[in-house]
Write a protein that binds this DNA or RNA. Sequence first.
DNA 1: TTGAAAGCGCTAACAC
DNA 2: GTGTTAGCGCTTTCAA
Lengths: 341, 341
Amino acid sequence: MSTIKDIAKAAGVSITTVSRALNGYSDVSIKTKQRIHDIAKELEYSPNALARSLVMKKTKTIGLLVSGLNRSGSKDHIVMDVLTGIHEYCGEYEYDIVLFSTSTSRQGEKTYTQLCRERRVDGVIVQGIKKDDPYLIEILNSDIPCVLVDVPAEGEKVGFVTTDNVEGAMKAIDHLVSLGHDKIAMVNGHDQAFVSQERLKGFKLGLENLEKTFHPRLVVNGDYDEAISEEKAFQLLQHHPEITAVFCASDLMAFGVMRAARRHGLRVPEDLSIVGYDDIALASYVSPPLTTIAQDTFEMGYAAARLLVGILEETEVERICMVDNELKIRETTIKQAKIKK
Amino acid sequence: MSTIKDIAKAAGVSITTVSRALNGYSDVSIKTKQRIHDIAKELEYSPNALARSLVMKKTKTIGLLVSGLNRSGSKDHIVMDVLTGIHEYCGEYEYDIVLFSTSTSRQGEKTYTQLCRERRVDGVIVQGIKKDDPYLIEILNSDIPCVLVDVPAEGEKVGFVTTDNVEGAMKAIDHLVSLGHDKIAMVNGHDQAFVSQERLKGFKLGLENLEKTFHPRLVVNGDYDEAISEEKAFQLLQHHPEITAVFCASDLMAFGVMRAARRHGLRVPEDLSIVGYDDIALASYVSPPLTTIAQDTFEMGYAAARLLVGILEETEVERICMVDNELKIRETTIKQAKIKK
DNA sequence: TTGAAAGCGCTAACAC
DNA sequence: GTGTTAGCGCTTTCAA
């Protein structure tokens, strides 16, 4: 593989001149510049990004730390959408992405910080990692520029992107209440997740705003898992037959609730209205199609990359980025007419 | 950020010794080795992978070239599963993945080969790229070790992984014929795709083996698109009411066919049996759940990474890797009882 | 407009 | 066992 040295020799100039010519500096005579370019092409020259990065001290690379990338293969495509958004932005701004291979099994496992330092990534985007993960904390305390997805953190070189989960939950509640529902349950994820906390907050607030009482008894955690949600919802419906609607913190959990309803002989939506969260592809395919709060996950990825690059190039000041969400009314919610019990 | 030079100074030894100690060479006295490690820890030393790669001429990095990573957000998770498989293997063998940002929009776009050369990736995995893509051809002709997913190519440093698509299609046909179907149509993808060609081959072969005649008229291309398939299938069913079963080269296209059937007032599976291909998550959620040929896409990714690393480290000789597939019988196929027309 | 020289952080002969 | 030295391919002062 040829180097600028080879080009220099072939062109009869110094490597300095070649470097300058190739990088489009103006202080090279137009004709030597042309000659150098010709020779570079002829020699099939490719600049060595390693060497350049070594001296420039930046790599035009952003690291990606993702959890939940494992065989069990999530049915949702959220991780993928976010990745796609990041990829899109990076394509436009000539950053490449390095996806770290954080093997849990491998001994002598490296921390996220070490991974980032070794590869000298300019910054890192973190997704799907619990906010109390010690490695996460370490990286936040380091000087590595960092953008988190759905985990709140701010700092000189730290930002995050999320959607307004409080508002999203409120939209769901507004919708249900406007349909005449009164006894609304919630199947939340788990308390450690920021988004769960926010959605619960929105659930409460939504009820209060509409002068409905919030019943802690009607809230269960489904751990973002379909089967667990099914069980939890089954019990909930058993103990509280007065429930006419359920708001779920994820679509997958909503599917679990749909199953639980079916086991109780309840029809959806006639006997039980259900609202999900995320709007994954499945949501519109199941039957009946699921009413849900749609998040623009692609946009979240895109925004995360933009925010990170903004931090890196010191053009962006706002460290928080809120992406819109939207209520998608489909067929799992319907007017509550009958008086139950 | 500290370097081996700093450590050398602090330890009062030469940088060579530090390098050797840190890399676990045996020819360093146990006590200096220990001291060096202590100092390294104290100084929070991180090796600079760039510098090391520069001199070692390898980066422990594999490139990933993927098409179909864009906003429209594929409903299938195939790309993701393959990526996950690659990620898993890389985690075990300490390779990192760089996802190239191939912006189509950006001017002065670089070829895949250039991207790989600049980053000095050790090898590259290519997925979802058409086999006649000029950039793909360029990279195959280069000396960059390369593994393709579902595109056949072999060479000194080139291999590919795929599933047995001929066999997969035959399984589908066997299944349908065993249910008594005779007039079986096929909705294929498009002629440029290797897998399409293979599945068509399997379709023909499957019919011939069972002494059924192959009718070219009953094969249409749906371009792996749900809407297009719906249209094509709608017309097909109109012109050929004798059709009792349809084999589709993807699940998404099968959904299109289901829609088309519905528009014709045909019930699935009573009036029309349908078999898909891929077994995406949606397949088991739609109603009725789709009978399909399942591909282990995670395994494909894992195998692709293993093959590439095998080529890189010169341990693997077999340049082709076949991953299993499996017929998943669900509810869109049923015994053909009635005599149509 | 061009070149010489230093250095980014590391490894690897080759001495001692 | 340990150090000296010469690079890997590039950018960037500083001089000419």
